[in-house]
């Protein structure tokens, strides 16, 4: 894991928010870790105090090693009127590789305004993994793979 505590907390929080492991979100040896891009995007779009509040809150939750970390994150972060919308935007970012503008009509939909974080991010969107597929336009699989169900 990273020596940057912000990154460590961000990846830890992201794992709870997305349902993926920290190693999946931030592999130990990775040429283009998208977690770094996402943290940078978060910091570029959200006030530093709010980012700190989210990461610190998560750090405190994690330090206590609660039996149900999902429940703690929900109650302390997702249900918080200030932190909740940002946390949900973090989930959207991981799944769809998009940072949606927060100052627009809610709820955010597929047609809301936003920015694709990067080409690298697009190729690593989790929505495609959740579908046991690959990003449209970026497949690493071989001819005919579509004729049989995916490897589990």
């Amino acid at each position: 894991m990273s020596s940057d505590p912000d990154l460590t907390n961000f990846v830890g929080l992201s794992a709870v928010l997305t349902g993926y492991t920290t190693d999946q979100l931030f592999p130990p040896i990775s040429p283009e870790p998208v977690a770094v891009e996402y943290l940078n995007t978060l910091k570029a779009n959200v006030a530093a105090t709010l980012v700190n509040q989210i990461l610190t809150t998560f750090q405190n939750i994690a330090a206590q090693q609660p039996p149900n970390i999902d429940q703690e994150v929900q109650q302390q972060i997702l249900d918080d009127p200030a932190m909740g919308p940002v946390a949900r935007n973090i989930i959207r970012m991981w799944y769809l590789s998009i940072w949606y503008d927060l100052n627009q009509q809610q709820p955010i939909t597929g047609f809301s305004a936003g920015t694709v974080v990067s080409m690298n991010a697009y190729t690593k969107g989790l929505a495609w993994d959740a579908a046991q597929a690959h990003p449209m336009g970026y497949s690493e699989m071989h001819y005919g793979y579509w004729a049989t169900p995916p490897e589990s």
Partner: peptide
């Protein structure tokens, strides 16, 4: 339906996150 974008956003707006979100999306998309 502009998926996966629309359904992901719909599920998140409905409060889903974590492994619940992941498995519900999987069940829908496949």
């Amino acid at each position: 339906n502009n998926d996966p974008w629309n359904s992901v956003n719909e599920f998140i707006a409905a409060g889903q996150f974590g492994s619940t979100l992941k498995s519900n999306l999987n069940s829908l998309f496949i």
